[in-house]
Lab assay of single mutants.
Amino acid sequence: TTYYDVLGVKPNATQEELKKAYRKLALKYHPDKNPNEGEKFKQISQAYEVLSDAKKRELYDKGGE
């Protein structure tokens, strides 16, 4: 599973699309609303952290993490 899959976006997604997808999923899986989905929330946050940063995203796209 790639970070793009976690957020449900395509690899060519814009920053705005990433932000929108992250917010939607973060609300859905937030531990306050969904106590059993803490791990999913962490995955979503990690994916967004990497993909929202241009340098980290470039490194990730080249095969790094």
Results as ranks from 00 to 15, higher is better:
Q15C: 11
S45N: 12
P35N: 07
T14Q: 03
R57I: 02
R23G: 08
G64S: 12
D61R: 02
K28R: 11
D61W: 02
L51Y: 00
Y29I: 04
G38H: 14
L7W: 01
L59Q: 13
A54E: 11
P35A: 10
D32V: 10
E39P: 06
D5N: 07
E39S: 08
R23H: 14
E37I: 06
G64N: 14
P31N: 07
V9Q: 02
V9A: 03
L18C: 03
V6D: 05
E17Y: 03
I44F: 03
Y22M: 05
K33D: 07
H30M: 07
V6I: 15
R57F: 02
K28Q: 15
Y22L: 03
K19M: 14
K55D: 10
K24Q: 12
V9R: 01
V6R: 05
I44L: 07
Y48H: 02
K42G: 05
P31M: 06
T14C: 04
A26M: 15
A21F: 02
Q15N: 11
E37L: 09
K28W: 07
K20S: 14
P11M: 11
V50T: 10
N36V: 10
L59A: 14
H30I: 05
Y3A: 04
K56E: 06
G64P: 11
Y22A: 02
T2E: 06
P31A: 08
D53A: 04
T1H: 12
Y48F: 10
L27R: 11
A21D: 00
R57M: 03
E65F: 14
D5P: 00
K33S: 12
R57Y: 03
L27P: 03
L27G: 08
K56S: 12
Y29N: 03
I44D: 00
L27N: 11
E58N: 07
E16K: 11
P11G: 05
P11C: 10
G38P: 11
G63T: 13
P35S: 08
N36T: 13
Y3N: 02
Y60K: 03
E65N: 13
L25V: 03
N36M: 12
V6M: 09
T1E: 11
N34C: 08
Y4M: 01
V9P: 00
Q46H: 12
A21T: 04
Y48D: 01
T14S: 11
Y4F: 02
Y48M: 05
G63V: 11
E16A: 11
E17W: 04
D32S: 14
V6K: 04
E17S: 05
K19T: 14
